[in-house]
């Protein structure tokens, strides 16, 4: 059963992570996927972090590309639940309730 979603007024606030966000690295090493509920509006969401704008691998002069080093520290995740939280400014690029939180990378 999906968790209930609270249509709270839009507010940009830093919160402690809720539930147990899972941080998973993709098989090819190019992505981190953070899955977990929003601590504010409780929407379940997936947040992705990619390696590099120009692709993940750096060729050594056209040679083999190596796998990127792991992300250390934590990843800042923000709510992208997609619900029309009230009071969200129309010019805001946000698509969620405004909350953001840190998820440590294992």
């Amino acid at each position: 059963m999906p968790p209930a979603h609270d249509l709270t007024p839009f507010r940009e606030q830093e919160l402690a992570p809720a539930g147990n966000p899972a941080v998973v690295r993709s098989a090819d090493g190019r992505w981190y996927t953070v899955t977990g509920p929003c601590p504010n509006c409780h929407a379940n969401s997936v947040f992705r972090v990619a390696y590099g704008v120009l692709g993940p691998y750096k060729g050594r002069w056209l040679g083999r590309r190596s796998e990127p080093e792991p992300h250390s520290g934590s990843i800042l995740v923000y709510c992208q639940c997609g619900f029309p939280h009230p009071d969200r400014p129309s010019e805001s690029p946000d698509t969620g309730c405004g909350a953001f939180w840190d998820v440590p990378v294992p």
Partner: peptide
Amino acid sequence: LGQRMWLSGD
């Protein structure tokens, strides 16, 4: 910008 790095906020 953003080449060869993780695109996370910090």
